[in-house]
């Protein structure tokens, strides 16, 4: 464990807490893409299958349970909770994320560390996470004004993978046989997708203005 990875995990946890806070405090999920939440739940379920087979550390197990639990709770909330689901921007959240799932699964069948079921699923979860934020970014562009908590949620979600890239660079130089090129390339793509969001987020912070994404 290094400071980049720990900070990255904490940033990821913070993004989930901010999202839970927004949904719980405002009883609204306006500006949040249900499709991105569903993709993330799928990412965690596909990636953490080894939850009960390979024990790595208490921290690792606890965080996996938190990520799986929170992502399923958010999807449930946005689908079932009568107050919350009323504020869901259904007509704006129309990105066909099933294509993302199919594409990532095909890619995982072709490009993986070892052609075994757990490895293919792991690669699938890595590729899917890289593109899972697309419905959310599309929704933000369509909905124009972004409320603070939603903006902070998306910012933290993007920042965590940028910190993971620093972690992979650090591990590459400090661990002899470290090679995570699948996660690293996917992580670079994932972070690059946030580039223009980071730019407008920085502008809104610098000018102390409302976050506006050009539609």
């Amino acid at each position: 464990m290094n400071v980049f990875r720990l900070t990255g995990d904490m940033t990821h946890l913070a993004s989930i807490l901010v999202l839970l806070l927004k949904i719980y405090a405002t009883k609204s999920c306006s500006g949040i893409s249900l499709k991105t939440q569903e993709l993330y739940a799928l990412v965690f379920l596909a990636r953490y299958l080894n939850l009960f087979t390979d024990f790595i550390s208490v921290y690792n197990t606890v965080m996996k349970l938190v990520f799986i639990g929170s992502s399923l709770a958010i999807v449930w909330c946005m689908r079932m909770h009568k107050m919350v689901k009323r504020s869901y921007d259904q007509e704006l959240d129309t990105f066909r994320h099933y294509f993302l799932i199919a594409g990532c699964f095909l890619l995982a069948l072709l490009v993986n560390e070892k052609f075994m079921f757990p490895e293919v699923l792991w690669a699938f979860s890595i590729y899917l996470e890289a593109v899972s934020t697309i419905p959310q970014l599309v929704l933000l562009q369509r909905s124009g004004n972004v409320d603070n908590l939603t903006g902070q949620y998306v910012f933290l979600l993007g920042a965590y993978r940028a910190l993971y890239i620093l972690n992979w660079i650090y591990r590459y130089f400090t661990e002899p046989h470290f090679s995570r090129w699948i996660a690293c390339v996917a992580g670079l793509v994932q972070t690059a997708l946030y580039a223009d969001f980071f730019y407008y987020y920085f502008l809104s912070w610098k000018n102390n203005a409302k976050l506006q994404l050009p539609s």
Partner: peptide
Amino acid sequence: KEEPQAHDEL
């Protein structure tokens, strides 16, 4: 191919 490393990251 060497055994894939255990995925110790989240």
